[in-house]
Computed example of a mutant assay.
Amino acid sequence: MAISTFAQDRFKYTTIAHNGHHYCSPLSPNRAAELLAALQLQPDALVLDAGCGKAALLRDLLKSQPVRGVGVDINSYFLAEASDAWVASNPDDDRLTLIESEVKHHPFPASGYDAILCIGSTHAFDGFEHCLTICKQWLKPGGKLLVGEAYWKQRPSDEYLAILDAREDELTGHAENAKRTVAHGYTLRTMAASNDDEWDQYERMYCAAIMQYIAAHPEDPDAQAFGDRAQRWYDSYLASGRSTLGFGYYLLQKN
Results as ranks from 00 to 15, higher is better:
233 W>L: 11
204 R>K: 14
170 E>Q: 12
220 D>R: 10
175 A>S: 12
150 A>G: 10
238 L>H: 03
243 S>D: 15
239 A>F: 00
186 Y>P: 09
241 G>E: 06
200 D>Q: 11
168 E>R: 09
191 M>W: 12
152 W>E: 02
164 L>S: 00
215 A>T: 11
191 M>C: 13
229 R>A: 12
158 D>E: 14
159 E>Y: 12
226 F>D: 13
193 A>W: 00
195 N>F: 08
239 A>H: 08
214 I>G: 06
205 M>S: 14
240 S>K: 02
201 Q>C: 12
216 A>T: 11
212 Q>T: 13
226 F>E: 04
214 I>L: 05
233 W>V: 01
179 K>W: 00
138 W>F: 07
159 E>K: 14
143 G>Q: 11
175 A>D: 14
151 Y>G: 03
210 I>M: 13
195 N>P: 08
177 N>Q: 06
188 L>V: 15
209 A>H: 08
163 I>A: 10
223 A>G: 04
180 R>Y: 01
191 M>E: 14
167 R>K: 15
177 N>G: 05
146 L>N: 07
239 A>C: 00
216 A>H: 09
171 L>M: 10
241 G>H: 08
196 D>G: 12
149 E>V: 06
148 G>R: 05
160 Y>C: 04
176 E>A: 15
165 D>A: 12
161 L>T: 09
245 L>R: 11
173 G>Y: 08
168 E>Y: 04
152 W>R: 04
241 G>Y: 11
141 P>E: 10
145 L>K: 04
190 T>D: 04
219 E>N: 09
184 H>E: 10
190 T>H: 03
183 A>P: 06
217 H>M: 01
185 G>C: 12
157 S>V: 03
243 S>N: 14
196 D>Q: 15
198 E>S: 11
217 H>V: 02
144 K>I: 05
214 I>V: 14
181 T>Q: 00
231 Q>C: 04
214 I>N: 06
233 W>A: 13
213 Y>S: 02
156 P>L: 07
146 L>A: 09
216 A>L: 13
230 A>G: 01
199 W>S: 02
245 L>S: 10
232 R>H: 14
193 A>F: 03
164 L>M: 14
142 G>K: 03
181 T>F: 00
152 W>N: 03
243 S>Q: 15
143 G>I: 05
145 L>P: 02
146 L>S: 08
197 D>W: 06
202 Y>M: 07
212 Q>S: 15
148 G>S: 05
237 Y>D: 04
154 Q>Y: 01
173 G>I: 07
242 R>M: 05
236 S>V: 09
241 G>K: 06
142 G>Q: 03
143 G>H: 07
239 A>V: 02
218 P>M: 03
243 S>T: 13
141 P>S: 13
153 K>G: 01
189 R>Q: 13
188 L>A: 08
145 L>R: 06
213 Y>F: 13
183 A>W: 01
218 P>H: 04
217 H>L: 05
238 L>Q: 14
198 E>K: 10
148 G>D: 03
173 G>R: 05
227 G>V: 01
145 L>M: 08
177 N>M: 05
170 E>A: 07
184 H>P: 02
196 D>R: 15
220 D>I: 08
186 Y>M: 09
153 K>W: 01
242 R>Y: 02
223 A>T: 09
228 D>A: 15
241 G>V: 06
222 D>Q: 15
214 I>D: 04
206 Y>P: 01
142 G>S: 06
161 L>F: 07
235 D>C: 04
216 A>M: 11
203 E>G: 02
210 I>T: 12
176 E>G: 11
222 D>M: 11
194 S>N: 02
